[in-house]
């Protein structure tokens, strides 16, 4: 009897995936569908388009969204400008693998702790909390997420490309601009996504670093739900989801094995 049971097990090893597939359906897919449903419901659960009108005509909401995009773009630009040289220099060093780790290490410490540490130092130095400190905190928090994919890509580029370019008469600047930089595009795109998306949806960091003056999109999503405005909150979440999906499509288009970068995160 037992033997027959095991035979069956062999034929259908895929049954092992069923509990997890059900779990994913229940706790990942359905919750996202519920967001979509809630976007079309008013507080009495009637179908409505009112929520869209409320969100897209509210100046305050759009200003927060605009601010978040602005903070996201500036943070991403700074991370790229600061992080690219770090990743590039490390990729050329023989012990670069260990050195680049030093830049990624802070990522493993909870972001709340890092943010509160920087805040305490800003206060002690007498720096006024505002946009400047928020941007510093964001760059400080997300720089490792930029350096990691850049380093992975840069260190996997075959050296013979730039050597060939040099042999063919290109000077150093041209070698960099025409071979290394284009070959690292996929790393740049991954880095941008890994910094931009968390930055615009960040929750708590900007509030802490600006004493509640600067409010980003993640904060307003949380606030809408806290105030029971599920409809508007759901719309905001959908807007955020759209950003996530679009950036992922772009990333996948540039980088057919984006998983490799994500996996090497650990």
């Amino acid at each position: 009897m037992a033997k027959i049971k095991f035979k069956k097990l062999r034929l259908t090893k895929k049954v092992f995936s069923i509990p997890y597939i059900l779990f994913l359906l229940l706790f990942v897919v359905i919750p996202l569908v519920l967001i979509l449903v809630n976007a079309f419901l008013d507080s009495d659960n009637n179908l409505t388009l009112e929520n869209f009108k409320v969100f897209f005509t509210s100046r305050a909401n759009l200003i927060v969204l605009g601010n978040s995009l602005l903070v996201g773009i500036i943070t991403t630009a700074f991370c790229l400008l600061i992080g690219y040289p770090v990743a590039y220099i490390c990729s050329k060093m023989s012990s670069g693998k260990i050195i680049v780790l030093l830049y990624i290490l802070p990522m493993f410490v909870n972001f709340l702790i890092r943010t509160l540490a920087t805040k305490a130092i800003f206060i002690a130095m007498g720096v006024e909390l505002g946009m400047g400190t928020v941007l510093f905190g964001m760059v400080y928090n997300y720089l490792p997420f930029m350096i990691l994919p850049l380093h992975t890509t840069l260190s996997s580029i075959d050296k013979s490309y730039s050597e060939a370019a040099q042999d063919l008469g290109a000077n150093k600047a041209t070698v960099f601009l025409k071979t290394t930089l284009p070959l690292s595009t996929s790393g740049i795109i991954s880095g941008i996504t890994m910094v931009f998306i968390p930055t615009i949806s960040t929750y708590a960091i900007s509030q802490l670093l600006s004493n509640g003056k600067i409010f980003l999109f993640g904060d307003s999503i949380q606030l809408s739900f806290e105030q029971g405005l599920y409809g508007v909150g759901s719309i905001m979440s959908l807007v955020m989801l759209a950003f996530v999906l679009i950036s992922n499509l772009i990333m996948n288009a540039f980088n057919s094995n984006s998983n490799a970068v994500r996996r090497s995160l650990w």
């Binding site: 967001i35 949806s201 996530v244």
Partner: peptide, 12 residues
């Protein structure tokens, strides 16, 4: 994004 995952689970 973490916040979207968080609120989706909360609604659920």
């Amino acid at each position: 994004s973490e916040i979207v995952m968080a609120v989706s689970l909360m609604i659920f």
